[in-house]
Amino acid sequence: PIDPEHPIQRMQHFFRDSGAKVLLTQRKLKALAEEAEFKGVIVLADEEESYHADARNLALPLDSAAMANLTYTSGTTGTPKGNIVTHANILRTVKGTNYLSITEQDTILGLSNYVFDAFMFDMFGSLLNGAKLVLIPKETVLDMARLSRVIERENISILMITTALFHLLVDLNPACLSTLRKIM
């Protein structure tokens, strides 16, 4: 995953370093991908024509050791490095764990930006367990009053949150956390 708000040089590094051959994006971001010198095939998720070339599914079953995602570090200590996440890594995090069971009755709030590894817990934790996933815009995450209302309104039961953000919610509206059964 690549955040379109990242600097062009960072995107160029991701494309070169990963050797990606296909980029799934939106029409409005195609020019940005081209500016970042992506050399592979660009598939536009919001253009139906993009789905007619080859409708065959991937060969199954996939190897659990195969890469499911490549997530880059922030690069604060130098050049961002790609971290390979395998299918087994994802499954170990959200299925049959010794720290949490996620059920179809759960609602998970996705607070993390989709380019961070924490988002994989939110996304795959919900999808692979039949739970509901609530996604919110960055503006809501940064507005504690709005965030607390979403938690209450959506009856969030599982939440992965930073300690600082948790303390802000507790200071503002501790009652908004009453529906939670697991906070990480």
Results as ranks from 00 to 15, higher is better:
70 L>Q: 02
6 H>K: 07
13 H>K: 13
162 T>E: 01
69 N>T: 10
105 Q>G: 15
159 L>N: 08
28 K>Y: 05
26 Q>W: 04
11 M>E: 01
53 A>N: 15
60 L>S: 14
38 F>K: 01
35 E>D: 08
68 A>N: 05
124 F>Y: 13
175 A>V: 08
172 L>H: 15
38 F>Y: 04
62 L>T: 14
138 K>P: 01
133 L>C: 12
53 A>M: 11
96 G>H: 06
112 S>M: 11
71 T>N: 10
92 R>K: 13
150 V>P: 04
152 E>R: 09
149 R>K: 12
77 T>P: 00
47 E>G: 12
131 A>V: 03
17 D>I: 07
43 V>L: 07
102 I>D: 00
84 I>E: 11
82 G>D: 02
58 L>G: 15
145 A>V: 11
100 L>V: 13
5 E>L: 10
55 A>S: 14
87 H>C: 12
120 M>Y: 06
2 I>C: 03
19 G>F: 02
126 S>Y: 00
167 H>Y: 08
53 A>S: 15
145 A>E: 08
141 V>Q: 04
6 H>T: 05
37 E>Y: 05
45 A>E: 06
56 R>S: 15
88 A>R: 11
137 P>E: 09
132 K>N: 11
89 N>V: 02
22 V>H: 02
178 S>C: 13
108 I>Q: 00
136 I>F: 03
11 M>R: 00
165 L>Q: 07
